[in-house]
Write a protein that binds this DNA or RNA. Structure first.
Lengths: 143, 143
DNA sequence: TTATCTGCAAATAATTTGCATTACT
DNA sequence: AGTAATGCAAATTATTTGCAGATAA
């Protein structure tokens, strides 16, 4: 029995073919962040016959089960916003999106995290979740 | 000639009734952040006959003209994401969204801003734009 | 005047849902 | 076997667009 099978069981999800394929794809792809449509195409390209609706349904179940994390990168460039998904590996991190290549870089900064807590606290709140996205471009070597 | 008229002229936009109304509403409302639909309703409720398509068109022109800023608060609660708009007063700030009341609190933190620059720099990038949203809930007094 | 703007209705795009069928356990 | 999951197509939602008529400069 595969490792993914166990993961699905632990999440309380019945082990079906589409769920296994989607989970495996997300684990194996070099592109950590994928949209529902990219996942749909990737699977169909490798011969799987899985519907787009199923991809959306499974991703949202995975999200509830904390197997996956959903992001809305609004690249500011006016394009229609599309959700993208990545495996939830437990440790939180923030994102940098390169506006030229579309590349997504992950980072984590203790100082920023702590500061956020302090700010929420000061205003009488506690943080439930947060999202920090920096839209960046490669830096000119001379500058 | 009203102040808003001047603002529109400066932005290179023809001064039309819908544009004036939308700009004034955003300046006068106590609710700094409004969705296109909220703006549409608010104006129609006060007797203006302005189409929703026009509201969208004007908002996107305002955004290009830097009169307005657009946000996608994905409150994590699974509701469909809707853009919301606020007047662009020049100085940048980040947001806290209360998950219980929907209230939007603005804040600015020099330390976080600086840290972001450093991180982007360290990775070989420069920041074009960024978005930090904290989803929060009122803090229990005892805790 | 005359190009630009507006309102309406129809078009898109991303995502969701209804339902008959299929697949886990 | 029996319930839950899937695929397809139709429905929704937010937003955009085409076009004929209205309007600002």
């Amino acid at each position: 029995m595969s490792e993914e099978t166990t993961e699905l069981r632990k999440a309380g999800l019945k082990v079906t073919h589409p769920r296994l394929q989607i989970l495996r794809l997300l684990e194996q792809t070099d592109q950590k962040h994928m949209t529902a449509d990219q996942i749909y195409r990737a699977l169909n390209d490798q011969g799987e016959d899985i519907g787009l609706a199923t991809v959306y349904r499974v991703l949202s179940q995975f999200e509830s089960a904390q197997l996956v994390r959903k992001h809305m990168f609004d690249d500011g460039s006016g394009r229609p916003a599309q959700a993208c998904y990545e495996l939830d590996e437990g440790e939180h991190h923030d994102h940098m999106v390169c506006m030229e290549t579309g590349e997504v870089i992950e980072f984590f900064d203790e100082a920023i995290e702590r500061r956020q807590e302090e700010i929420a606290h000061k205003h009488g709140y506690e943080i439930v979740d947060h999202s920090l996205v920096m839209y960046v471009r490669p830096r000119k070597s001379n500058g």
